[in-house]
Design a protein around this nucleic acid. Structure first.
Lengths: 233, 233
DNA sequence: ACCTGAACACCGTTCAAGT
DNA sequence: ACCTGAACACCGTTCAAGT
């Protein structure tokens, strides 16, 4: 039996209580921020934390469980991305809210990966945070004369649009390819009549500021027309 | 050396030319249709095709390459989901188009997985199909007086909304959990004022027919108002 | 030219210990 | 009660053959 360590020195066994769920969670979150969510694996996380791989399973039943908890943290961070002044009209409120919605996601891809792209089970706490935030938006709309059901439908339409925009953009970023434009992609397609007559090239994913602002403004214009049809209290 | 096969009989070696890229592609597509895209792995596919795993790599450089080709096939199938009558006004055209857009995806989850959810590199052929279809929609809008750039922005807004709706719904289906409603999820959240006053429970993901129709109709209403602002040629 | 198994470097997770 | 390595059943992919 050789006394000299044959390979690299083995990590010392850690003391009881020297790891915590919080420490693992923070480590996982930081890892995903620095590298990517895709790169996050249980062995790599254990290595970073200087812990045996299996120790993580004492605190989290599965990787999915860990990701769900990370999503809760992401939801808290996302929520902090909003700062909306008082006294805005409902349409200005919606503009501000959904611009911040998009900007917060764009500034932190991990939030998109966890909140938008993943099949997440929201924890009760994550649900509470989202519900409270959404309810705030609905309140503004209801005070302006929309019914609660109309307000939720309006929120849903804008939210799905904004999430779709953010997810599509993220998809291109993850793929790591240069963003294709209408001119580069459609320039060669025969039979195309309109796509070749654009004033300027458009990002193919239709996730540019111009496209986002158009979709946002258009939805708000639709809501204005709706509130005129069924006049406000 | 034992002559009796120790374990199960080994598959006979296949003849040269007895596999083709097309056969692999069809096998992979059928596998994903029957099981799921998630369940599709190279070993499982090889087993189904009765081929050595590595043989697949003669025809496809990587799994990603195979998936890209599957996406092209999915795009063809998606394209066949459209059947739009002549002579519709632009707003009726958009309603019909995006309802069929959503319905085709809803009827075949694999199309969502490949076209919407995946970070796909569209093959030139897939790009051609999509460009031709989109150009058809843009033509209708341009003939009704929208500028090419407006038309593309309008298409983008509706497309991102519809894709967002379809993706969100798919997420719940894949997760295999019962669709949560506003009443089940938000009933217990303190401080919520509007969400508790809805006329009826809403699907939490906001992907119901009611929500989709609201978003679609609202966007079209917005476009109508826009065409009134900058009057049609 | 085409098909193949063995092998490699990874996963997530379980289990039977160690302390 | 908490931490651990060995082991298992999977991946996608490469390589050096076979025919």
């Amino acid at each position: 039996v050789p006394t000299t360590p044959a390979r690299e020195t083995r990590r010392k066994r850690r003391a009881r209580g020297s790891i915590s769920a919080e420490e693992i969670l923070v480590g996982a979150y930081e890892f995903a921020m620095e590298e990517s969510l895709e790169a996050l694996s249980m062995p790599r996380l254990a290595q970073r934390l200087d812990v045996g791989v299996t120790s993580i399973y004492w605190y989290f039943r599965s990787k999915e469980d860990l990701l769900d908890t990370m999503t809760e943290r992401a939801m808290q961070e996302f929520d902090r991305g909003f700062d909306i002044p008082d006294g805005l009209s409902w349409d200005e409120y919606l503009r501000t809210y959904f611009r911040q919605f998009r900007q917060t996601f764009r500034a932190n891809g991990l939030l998109v990966d966890l909140i938008v792209m993943r099949n997440a089970t929201l924890t009760p706490e994550a649900t509470r945070i989202a519900a409270t935030r959404i309810d705030g938006v609905l309140n503004v709309l209801v005070e302006s004369g929309f019914s609660p059901d109309q307000a939720l439908c309006a929120y849903g339409a804008l939210s799905l649009f904004a999430r779709g925009s953010v997810a599509a953009e993220r998809t291109w970023i993850i793929a790591g390819r240069p963003p294709q434009t209408t001119s580069s992609a459609f320039g060669e397609v025969p039979g195309v009549t309109v796509l070749s007559r654009l004033q300027h090239p458009h990002v193919l994913a239709m996730t540019s500021d111009e496209h986002f602002e158009f979709g946002l403004e258009n939805a708000i214009r639709g809501l204005m027309a709706l509130s005129r049809e069924a006049p406000v209290g």
